[in-house]
Design a protein around this nucleic acid. Structure first.
Lengths: 202, 202
DNA sequence: TGTACATCAGTGAACGCGCGTTCACTGATGTAC
DNA sequence: TGTACATCAGTGAACGCGCGTTCACTGATGTAC
């Protein structure tokens, strides 16, 4: 907004917060989480190394912001996938597919959401940064699948475990590459694995 | 061996390599992978900060050694689990249980084996550090489960994905704690999730 | 058994590095009147 | 529309830090004769 008429970089960035998040995700993607530094993010955003502190209390806060972004996106796409399916079982499958697809499209977010150990800041209290939203969705789906009155928890966990494992193995490059080269291939693989548990493996 | 008669610490450690591996695993367990430093490992082993370089080329080599240790252990316990089961399907289940149990007992190893991005050193060539051993085991089991001549790969991946996902979620504290407090609870949960895929979810 | 010597596993000083974070500052923005 | 001023988002110097790694060294070990 109002990028100023001159080509010379304006004093104010305009949307530094977003730019930093984006730079951080790219940096982690290209190098690694260990290689992430606030200073490098600032460099990539074209800003002095202390500018980030206007937007994030510290390095951890940046990572937390990325994770939160991921929780929001995951819940949204899970919700959408469920809405598009008809039968209860199909909803569960759709959720699984959407879950793996999210990991495929946002590998850095996925890893940060689940694998990064957030040490709760003493000051900001009981802010437990897991993702109740997406999991609640899953539990609600599970409830429609199991017998009425039965605990949906085991089913919900089962339906979480499979796509989560696939996502992780995929991000860690343990799945043969040709099986996970496109979103379509990833979806097909997810459905195949689900089908295997329902046929070969029983 | 030959710890010397005096209580004073001997010049030679005796088994520094093992001590460093152990110290590293403990350090990661207590703090985090990010907090791991060779100097702190040396400190914990009661040795000068440059002593580790007699045993590991660099920090990455230490981490690699831990991962390799994990691969060996995982393959061994998978092999044993399979040997103890009778029917092909039971062998697969036993492998899954052993897999999750390994993660439960060696969380640091598990994470290092799968989640740590090893950048292949240019000098030591094509040393691809994944774990063919344990996965080959799984493929062989899968072959006995599927129809003769059919590709066992999807089944093997399916049987990997589920316990891997459970392991990861467990290590990342996403599973309700009472379900994963003891090895027995972990085994029961694993079997429950498998059963769910075979009944409720089909 | 005793001695000479190669080998090995430690030591500790030193190097350079990039990082996280703070601080006093300054340039731009927007609002009240 | 014009001016005064509070507020905000940047700057850049400075701090201290622990780390990875190297190097010349030294103490212990074990083997050949």
């Amino acid at each position: 907004v109002a990028r100023s008429k001159k080509a010379a970089r304006p004093y104010h960035h305009g949307d530094l917060r977003s730019a930093l998040l984006k730079a951080a995700v790219e940096l982690i993607d290209q190098r690694s989480l260990a290689a992430l530094s606030l200073r490098e993010c600032a460099r990539r955003a074209g800003v002095s190394h202390s500018a980030p502190y206007r937007h994030f209390a510290d390095k951890e806060a940046l990572l937390l912001a990325i994770a939160r972004q991921g929780y929001t996106w995951l819940e949204a796409s899970g919700r959408e996938a469920i809405a598009c399916a008809d039968a209860p079982l199909e909803k569960l499958d759709a959720y699984c597919v959407a879950y793996v697809r999210f990991a495929f499209e946002h590998p850095v977010h996925h890893r940060l959401m689940f694998t990064h150990p957030y040490e709760p800041h003493e000051d900001d209290a009981a802010e437990d940064d897991t993702d109740p939203g997406a999991f609640d969705l899953l539990v609600r789906c599970a409830r429609d699948v199991v017998a009425p009155g039965e605990d949906p928890m085991p089913t919900a966990l089962a339906a979480w475990t499979l796509p989560h494992g696939l996502s992780m193995l995929m991000l860690d490059r343990r799945i043969p590459e040709h099986l996970v080269q496109t979103p379509q291939a990833v979806e097909a693989l997810t459905r195949t694995l689900i089908a295997r548990w329902r046929s070969d493996l029983s």
